[in-house]
C-alpha cells in the first residue's frame, strides 16, 4: 500500500467511525457504510485538510473510486 493510500485509509477509518475499513484502488462509495453524497463532501474537506490540497467541483464529480482519488492527491502534492 502506498503512503498516500495508508494515510487515506486512516482518514477513512476515523471519518466513518469504523476501524475495519480496508481501502483498495477499487473501493467505491457502495463499499462503505455511510458514504453518501453529503458525507462525500465532508470527506473531501477532511482529505483537503490532511493533505493541504484543494479540489474543484469538477474534480470531485469525476472521481470513480479510491484509486483515482489517491492518484489525484498525488498529482496535486507532487
Amino acid at each position: 500500500m502506498t503512503e498516500t493510500m495508508t494515510k487515506l485509509q486512516d482518514i477513512f477509518r476515523d471519518f466513518f467511525d469504523d476501524e475495519d475499513i480496508v481501502l483498495t484502488d477499487e473501493t467505491t462509495a457502495d463499499d462503505i457504510d455511510g458514504w453518501d453524497s453529503l458525507t462525500h463532501v465532508q470527506l473531501i474537506v477532511a482529505v483537503e485538510k490532511a493533505f493541504s490540497v484543494k479540489f474543484s467541483t469538477v474534480e470531485v464529480m469525476k472521481l470513480k473510486n479510491v484509486g483515482e482519488f489517491a492518484a489525484l492527491i498525488e498529482k496535486k502534492t507532487a
Binding site: 453529503l38 463532501v41 470531485v60
Partner: peptide, 13 residues
C-alpha cells in the same frame, strides 16, 4: 454552492 450542486443539501453542512 459547490456542496449544494453535489449534495442538494439546501445549506452548507
Amino acid at each position: 454552492y459547490s456542496s449544494y450542486f453535489l449534495t442538494k443539501a439546501g445549506y452548507s453542512p
